[in-house]
Write a protein that binds this DNA or RNA. Sequence first.
DNA 1: CCTACCGATCGGTAGG
DNA 2: CCTACCGATCGGTAGG
Lengths: 196, 196
Amino acid sequence: MARIKADNDLSRKEIITQAAAALFQEKGFKAASMRDLADKVGVEAASLYNHIKSKAELLHNICVNVANNFWNHIHAVENHQGNAIEKIEMLLRFHIREMVNNYQEVYVSDREWKHLTEPYLSNFHTQRREYRKKIAALIEAGIKSGEIRPIDAPTAVLIMLHAVSGIDSWHRSKQKISAEALEENMVTIMINGLRK
Amino acid sequence: MARIKADNDLSRKEIITQAAAALFQEKGFKAASMRDLADKVGVEAASLYNHIKSKAELLHNICVNVANNFWNHIHAVENHQGNAIEKIEMLLRFHIREMVNNYQEVYVSDREWKHLTEPYLSNFHTQRREYRKKIAALIEAGIKSGEIRPIDAPTAVLIMLHAVSGIDSWHRSKQKISAEALEENMVTIMINGLRK
DNA sequence: CCTACCGATCGGTAGG
DNA sequence: CCTACCGATCGGTAGG
């Protein structure tokens, strides 16, 4: 009995979090009200608080989930057997697929994280900086091995990550090319831009 | 006398608009309050309304200024003598420089325009779409002439524009490379990514 | 999960 | 340019 109740609570909370991700993506965190969210879920605003603690908690959960997802993946990339270009392509394809399939959460985590409250804001910021350093290290390795042009690695990271975040425009576009074609086009442009 | 007063009003309004651009960039449009803005300018909130009509007008002015700036430039690019790669490089360098030198306004126009009110929202959206079509046409021309890889032009546009918007991270970074080095690195990666 | 309601803050106005 | 203030809306709570 207790377990079934706990399961129901969990999935209810997940439904609310998913709806919050969609809402924060559409309107932005500050412009999205808890009344908007309640409408989306189909309850009164006050009822949300039986499942969540606060609006801030919703943003926090979204950002932490996304951050951990990318954080886990880059360790797999680092341990992957292969040259630098292969590793970077692996990372790039993961980013593209996450942006395609898990659009709203990834978008919110990327664009709305500055509305996190302390200490989560500082934690997120630090992890983000570490994550980018890891990508820069992959690029540096590729420059040393002669696979990649002698460019500024942090600048290359910034181009890569932001290019991928442009997929939000793809989601909204009228005549979408397929997700596969999008991925191949992005990889072609970015990898050839880096490759010597 | 009347002229001096008019001049003072204009520059006062410009001071407020500049401060608003900085504030909207830092906090986001919705999270930035008119009391915040008044503090930044050094007056009481009510006094702002002797110079501006509304908070919405401030965002509108910022977005229209930026949009017109880019709109005028792309006509110069289209009329420029040269091959497709040269035109695209010219456009890319202009975007990079605007993002470096006119950071706050460009950033706000890029990230906060969805908070515009009608009919400005629709106008902005339409102009933005037309602008991107013009860039896609430049890329298509380069593909036809054999200068550029056979890629999906709208995807290439989206990568280019978003890569440039990543310069906001450069502004905040601790050990900044020079603006010139940033520009050369970006141009190298993007142009070689496109070039056949 | 709802009704009823709270204190805080918002954009903006009146009047001087 | 300021003091004083407004109606609306916000995130969230009490109590059932």
